[in-house]
Design a protein around this nucleic acid. Structure first.
Lengths: 250, 250
DNA sequence: CGCACTCTTGACTGATTTCAATTGGGGTGG
DNA sequence: CCACCCCAATTGAAATCAGTCAAGAGTGCG
């Protein structure tokens, strides 16, 4: 039996005991947002392929002439500062498009976080289709609108939230919106989270364990947690901190 | 002679002695990016009007069914957190469009920083034009691409730069790219800058005076500065800090 | 002429980073 | 199959950066 056989395919973290904990597409965007990529796929020819964790998808600045869609798994999009640190601008889950905007010029590098399937479109093909088919135009505009909304939120989080608030807010994104106490997985490493939230991985770790102590979540293991009090997390992320009072007791 | 007569019309900061210091359209985007709004204006009917500093343009969350273009002046786009703090997501200079994405639904509030002229398009009109005229499509996509690129940079700055680096980077944005030592104005208040960079206004003030001491810039007054060593600023913003060594001496 | 507001500056506090040590799990090779 | 190694994660302690609090200066406006 190989490692791959034992691995939890959903989250790509090895270990069979926890397979059942992996919520189906836990990090996936709501169904509605699958639409743009699905529609694009039906209207523009593209080449699908599978990639393994860590495998690179695109390189910052390259004029690859490609747009990439994530069909399954999770991809991290990042840039490096001149002094070598990394900033993960976003995690692209299934349904996300990478490289829109200046068609075909990559604004950032991208690598697989988990085993993923991606589809590659030629930017030129999309450009042509944009002229011919209004449905393509709608799909692209919708995808751009979604990314802009997502970025707006990320920006607010970076600009105005404390370290713990950022982590709480991120956990809310990881967990399905409605469910009160479902088990969720954390596909990415602490370092990935840290580089996305603009904090250190130690701070992420501490925050998670603090939430565990406060009974907001239950850390099942390093990559799985259960939401115990979603409202508590929400309040905490929002800055209402009745929870902070409990912090002293904890 | 009224206050308005004496005011520097470019930056809307009163005082006649400094009128000549106001670089023409100092904060304006490069000429190329004027294109989308200019083109849109020639293809879609819109209503222009003038607004005074502080006057509100749009309200977060409202489904106004409008898209706003900035013809001159400067507009701040912002959101408020639940605990009442403000985050300025971006400063929209002449040529910028506000409210693109989910057409007609405002992702944020907007107010004039300086006396500005804006033009209001009906989202429905743009939507119709998008179907009919490919040039509109190009203009909208280009504008979205520009905003996304801008946001990507802002996000990196918030996520990975120290307070001083953020201010240095912001100054670079305020000053025309090429000129070595031209005078620039700072149209917005310290608080505006702080709420954009995710720091306090005290920190902004301190950073500016530090750069002045280091001879990277010359602060002419609270709202005007001269770039002395652009490379120094660039290095500082990038994290190379040969300058920091001088900091001890200063 | 004085009020109000923005900006500057200093001293202190505290959150987060940095540095360092330890733990734990998984995969590899013996 | 077991021991070892490596990497990720956790945890603690010290150091630092930026925030908070507070006082004072400058400037425009009434």
């Amino acid at each position: 039996m190989t490692a791959a056989d034992k691995a939890c395919l959903k989250c790509a973290h090895p270990g069979d005991a926890l397979e059942l904990l992996c919520a189906p597409d836990a990090y996936a965007a709501p169904p509605a947002s699958m639409a743009p990529l699905a529609r694009l796929r039906s209207l523009v020819p593209g080449v699908a392929r599978s990639i393994i964790p860590g495998q690179h998808v695109s390189l910052e600045g390259e004029a690859s002439g490609q747009v990439i869609g994530v069909l399954s798994g999770l991809v991290r999009c990042f840039r490096l500062t001149t002094d070598g640190r990394r900033h993960i601008c976003r995690f692209a889950a299934s349904g996300s498009l990478i490289g829109l905007g200046l068609l075909g010029v990559q604004r950032h590098s991208a690598e697989a976080v988990t085993a993923s399937e991606i589809i590659t479109f030629r930017a030129a093909a999309i450009d042509v289709a944009l002229d011919r088919d209004p449905r393509v135009r709608v799909a692209i505009l919708q995808s751009l609108a979604e990314e802009l909304t997502e970025r707006e939120h990320i920006q607010l989080r970076l600009g105005r939230f404390s370290a713990d608030q950022r982590v709480a807010d991120f956990l809310l994104e990881l967990s399905p919106p409605q469910s009160g106490s479902l088990d969720c997985d954390i596909p990415m490493s602490r370092a990935d989270i840290a580089d996305h939230l603009g904090v250190t991985f130690e701070t992420v770790s501490r925050a998670l364990h603090r939430f565990d102590k406060l009974r907001l979540i239950r850390l099942l293991d390093a990559h799985h947690f259960r939401v115990l009090r979603r409202n508590g997390l929400t309040d905490f992320a929002a800055g209402d901190q009745p929870v902070h009072l409990q912090l002293a007791q904890a």
